[in-house]
Design a protein around this nucleic acid. Sequence first.
DNA 1: CAGATCGATGTCAGCTACTGTCATCACAAT
DNA 2: ATTGTGATGACAGTAGCTGACATCGATCTG
Lengths: 188, 188
Amino acid sequence: MSRWEPDARGRLERAALELYSERGFEQTTVAEIAARAGLTERTFFRHFADKREVLFGGAGQLQDLLVSTLASAPESAAPIDAVAGAFEAAARMLEERREYSGMRQATIAANADLQERELVKLATLSAALAGTLRQRGVAEPAASLAAEAGVTIFKIAFGLWVSETNQRTFVQLIQESLDELKAVTAGK
Amino acid sequence: MSRWEPDARGRLERAALELYSERGFEQTTVAEIAARAGLTERTFFRHFADKREVLFGGAGQLQDLLVSTLASAPESAAPIDAVAGAFEAAARMLEERREYSGMRQATIAANADLQERELVKLATLSAALAGTLRQRGVAEPAASLAAEAGVTIFKIAFGLWVSETNQRTFVQLIQESLDELKAVTAGK
DNA sequence: CAGATCGATGTCAGCTACTGTCATCACAAT
DNA sequence: ATTGTGATGACAGTAGCTGACATCGATCTG
């Protein structure tokens, strides 16, 4: 048998979400998370840059999915529609983990430091999408604006999705938010 | 004569910007900032919630200006145009402090933690603008979308303004970014 | 005017997030 | 058998941040 139990990183992620959810982010020490995972505080910081990052490991995967979906959108699609289409694909993935998403979102909503980190992740995502659009020939600042608009749509649709009592699907909410944005910005 | 030199808060703000600019944010300790201001570390934390906040004291004033300008926009203006008009007013204010703005922006750009805090300030601002729009009768999610779009325009225009060699004014850059956004989102 | 009160600051002790450094030891490569 | 290698533990240290209490001009109150 091996020297250590496997999946140290996953154990830390689960222990952290449990403790943050049970007693709050600030009331949880890193030493407690590590203890619940059967590890030491030092090992926690080898897997995660800081106490918040343990909740955002999935952000990278989400970003990869969005970028690759956007990169393979049809050439003919307008930038904003291609971006929205990528978010629809992401929504389909999240739709299967609605409970986990809600729990994680409640934890983040309860603490300002975690919201801060989430904003960073969304900004990073926006930059990645803008870069992908540029590779598709979209000029600046149109690329950044379309990416930011997509993230905005996603944020709003996500908030509705986790709070709503399951009437509309995540994908529907994204499509509706996109239509709203187009209506709002349809100026002379 | 009074017991202490006046404007402790201002002295701390100036000392912090100097030190962050000279040797970097992480390489500066709060004790050093306080010493340069002729105060103690404990007093620093009585004036500012944390080490980053000392750079964001002006964010509140900017937000007040934006909100009051937006609140007094003509009833007839479309939400997105009213928001953009408020940012133009803010731009006129910042136009007078271009050097300070550039120095502060360079400091923030050099450190991820400071960028994180700036994102929070912009998100707070967006929420305040959305609330103001709602009071003007704009429904959700149009209010949030218009506010987010305004912040996006501002971010892009600000980036161009501080990096450009003074060809276009800040106000012009905002107007041009607004036109770009309208073009990007002009869907079917 | 004497005394009480207040407000901004100082002092000090303490917690915890985070880091650097070195030791440990199962496992793999050779 | 020897020699890495890689994940972890152990331990000391820095610095951000907080709570509790003391200090002492300025100001109010009677």
